[in-house]
């Protein structure tokens, strides 16, 4: 019995550290969300303001803009990543001589730090000396002199590009795993039954990939919702506020404008969005599981 209580005693330090570093700040930010706290005025949260901070968010165009920017970013980057990952997985499925080589090359983008990806893409799209801006201008002369990151749509496109570039390879591996788990016979049976390749893909392979694609989509959506690094190092949220994602906006509110109460409220709004989407995905996933195993 003494051994047993000793076990718990030994767990206490780790438990305290976890509580202190995650649970406490989380709870603190939740209470802060309901208080007025301007860091330039006070070192501690001040009066309680009820739901004012939340209400403020939904009347402020700045926040609504960042919500819209985030939505566009999430939808395009998740969709593009999934399509590209699935296509690459189909191409890489057959084991060829280049098999190992291509897989190693593929994982490289994922090994890079997102902040550095932003920095390097900013250089590559520099209108004067960027390798991509100059390369594109060499192939398509009418692009000569395009200020890529100064155009709201183009800046967003490049932000999406860096994120897809970063994530698609990793997601490709997830899709490869999914493809490998599909019994070869179902595809061959369909070929004999008379299905064309396109039909086999949409009618036989894709339905069996549903579970894997859902998990991939959940992960990608959550990561896209948090998009921050490349915004800081690539666009700085600009031009204007055209690439100001929610995470970047919250950071600005908190650490540029020092409005901690408002920033906390915003952070909890983002959390609520993530949870809602996750629950929705997991529900779909569970009903999918049910179909597959019941």
């Amino acid at each position: 019995m003494r051994d047993r209580s000793l076990q718990y005693v030994l767990l206490v330090p780790a438990f305290v550290i976890v509580l202190a570093t995650t649970f406490y700040p989380l709870a603190y930010s939740l209470t802060t969300a309901f208080r007025d706290w301007d860091l330039t005025r006070s070192r501690r949260p001040e009066g309680w303001v009820g739901f004012d901070n939340f209400a403020h968010a939904f009347t402020e165009s700045h926040f609504l803009n960042s919500l819209w920017v985030t939505t566009i970013f999430v939808v395009t980057s998740v969709a593009l990543t999934l399509v590209i990952a699935m296509s690459l997985a189909l191409l890489l499925r057959r084991k060829g001589r280049m098999h190992t080589f291509t897989r190693v090359v593929l994982i490289l983008p994922f090994a890079m730090s997102p902040a550095l990806i932003g920095v390097s893409y900013r250089f590559m799209f520099n209108p004067e000396f960027g390798v991509l801006s100059n390369g594109l201008a060499a192939i398509f002369p009418w692009l000569e002199g395009t200020a890529w990151l100064a155009d709201p749509e183009l800046a967003m496109a490049i932000l999406v590009l860096t994120d897809v570039w970063h994530w698609a390879p990793y997601m490709t591996f997830m899709c490869l795993g999914g493809l490998a788990s599909i019994p070869r016979e179902t595809e061959e049976a369909a070929r004999i039954d008379g299905a064309s390749n396109i039909r086999i893909f949409f009618g036989i392979i894709l339905p069996q990939m549903k579970g894997v694609l859902l998990v991939t989509a959940i992960l990608k959506t959550i990561f896209a919702l948090k998009m921050f690094d490349q915004v800081v190092t690539l666009t700085g949220g600009g031009p204007g506020t055209s690439t100001e994602t929610l995470a970047y906006f919250i950071f600005n509110v908190g650490f540029e404008w020092y409005d901690m109460g408002y920033a906390s409220a915003l952070a909890w709004i983002l959390t609520a969005i993530m949870m809602t989407i996750s629950i929705w995905y997991v529900r779909m996933l569970l009903s999918e599981r049910k179909m597959a195993t019941a």
Partner: peptide, 14 residues
Amino acid sequence: DIAMVFQNYGLYPH
């Protein structure tokens, strides 16, 4: 114009 039966059945699970 053939039909095949597989060891692992090869049924379409969905």
